[in-house]
Simulated scan of single mutants.
Amino acid sequence: MEAAPVVTLINKRRSEIVVRWKEYMEERKDSSSIIDGRTIETTNDNFVDLIFDYLADNQSQDRLNNLMGRILALGWPLSYLTNGVHIFRRVVSTLIIESEMEKAVILDYFKAMEDLLDPIFNNLIEDATSTWENTVSIQKRALMELSAPLIPVMEYLAVMPLIGTIDTERAKLIMENLLEGVIAYRTEVVLIDITGVPVVDTMVAHHIIQAAEAVRLVGSECVLVGIRPEIAQTIVNLGIELGEFPTKSTLKKGIEYALELTNRAIVYKDKPSGLRL
């Protein structure tokens, strides 16, 4: 069955459909209780108008894509939007049944209605999911980049403070940031500070050693700092060999060591007279 008869029915009974649709949507407004009633009313009007506009026009893919963009722009939770489409289908189905047409005709109407509304529902899910996944991916990448920064402290010296758990994906990012930063800042010594890493196991140590070896290949030196007593004990118990990888207990000692490697030192000037501490 062509969609035209169903569209004609929907347009003919538009006012009744809108009233019933809003009644059902009103029952589900608790899921969006953080939004005031006037906003809900306005958005519901926009939502149902968009569906009617799409059904009244040529239901092409371009029209559908435009509909999706306009619906998602309303800013409603996906669950509320999918509910709206389901309720629209329910209201129209009820009207078809109430029309007292023959059973075969009713089935044809149902099939035509599904052909009209299923693309809206399916595309709504796909577009919303794609948008969500893209947003999460961007946010995750941004957080990971912030969690493994290479900070130039002074000429030829940089620090990479690590905080939290180090997994394979993050270890790859650490490696990338290290190598890019070493070249960009012309760094001779890099201090990898693991003070904020809660657990150093064999895998974490392996990733750090790999990073140090990669840095050494581009002509720089890596120093591991922030070795707490419990971390040192864990490394020994696990039999982890750090090899030629220098280690220091604190960042301060690491900076002093790095300055020695670059033929520099910290010089303390006399305290100015009259300065109170």
Score class of each variant (00 low, 15 high):
Met1Cys: 02
Ala3His: 12
Ala3Trp: 08
Pro5Thr: 11
Val7His: 01
Asn11Leu: 07
Arg14Cys: 08
Ser15His: 09
Glu16His: 03
Ile17Phe: 11
Ile17Gln: 13
Trp21Cys: 06
Trp21Ser: 08
Trp21Asp: 08
Glu26Ile: 00
Glu27Cys: 07
Ser33Val: 15
Ser33Trp: 06
Gly37Pro: 08
Thr39Ser: 15
Thr42Pro: 00
Asp45Met: 01
Val48Ser: 06
Leu50Asp: 11
Ile51His: 06
Phe52Arg: 11
Tyr54Phe: 15
Asp57Tyr: 05
Asp57Gly: 12
Ser60Arg: 09
Gly69Arg: 05
Gly69Trp: 00
Arg70Gly: 03
Arg70Asn: 13
Ile71Gln: 05
Ala73Tyr: 02
Gly75Pro: 11
Trp76Cys: 11
Pro77Gly: 08
Leu78Asn: 07
Leu78Ile: 15
Gly84Phe: 10
Ile87Phe: 03
Phe88Asn: 07
Ser93Ile: 05
Thr94Arg: 14
Thr94Ala: 10
Glu98Phe: 02
Glu98Gln: 14
Met101Phe: 10
Glu102Leu: 04
Ala104Met: 10
Ala104Asn: 14
Tyr109Gln: 11
Tyr109His: 14
Phe110Leu: 15
Met113Pro: 00
Met113Leu: 15
Glu114Tyr: 10
Glu114Lys: 15
Asp115Ile: 03
Leu116Pro: 02
Leu117Asn: 01
Phe121Lys: 07
Phe121Ser: 11
Leu124Tyr: 05
Ile125Thr: 01
Asp127Gln: 12
Ala128Ile: 04
Ala128Lys: 02
Ser130Met: 09
Thr131Tyr: 09
Thr131Met: 14
Trp132Val: 14
Glu133Cys: 06
Thr135Pro: 10
Val136Arg: 07
Ser137Lys: 15
Ala142Val: 11
Met144Leu: 12
Leu146Arg: 12
Ser147Ile: 04
Ala148Met: 09
Pro149His: 12
Leu157Thr: 09
Ala158Phe: 02
Pro161Phe: 05
Pro161Asn: 06
Ile163Pro: 03
Gly164Glu: 01
Thr165Asp: 03
Asp167Ala: 04
Asp167Asn: 09
Glu169Asp: 07
Lys172Asp: 07
Leu173Glu: 10
Met175Tyr: 00
Glu176Ile: 13
Glu176Ala: 15
Asn177Met: 09
Leu178Asn: 08
Leu178Gly: 14
Leu178Tyr: 00
Leu179Trp: 05
Glu180Ser: 12
Ala184Thr: 12
Arg186Leu: 10
Arg186Asn: 15
Val189Asn: 00
Val190Gly: 02
Ile194Glu: 02
Gly196Met: 02
Val197Trp: 10
Val199Arg: 08
Asp201His: 07
His207Tyr: 14
Ile209Lys: 07
Ala211Met: 06
Ala211Pro: 04
Leu217Asp: 03
Val218Trp: 02
Ser220Ile: 08
Glu221Tyr: 06
Glu221Gln: 15
Gly226Asn: 10
Ile227Trp: 02
Arg228Phe: 01
Pro229Ser: 08
Thr234Pro: 12
Thr234Lys: 06
Gly243Thr: 05
Lys248Ser: 03
Leu251Thr: 06
Gly254Gln: 00
Thr262Arg: 05
Thr262Val: 12
Asn263Ser: 10
Asn263Gln: 09
Ala265Gly: 03
Ile266Pro: 00
Val267Trp: 01
Lys269Gly: 14
Lys269Thr: 09
Lys271Met: 13
Ser273Thr: 12
Gly274Ala: 14
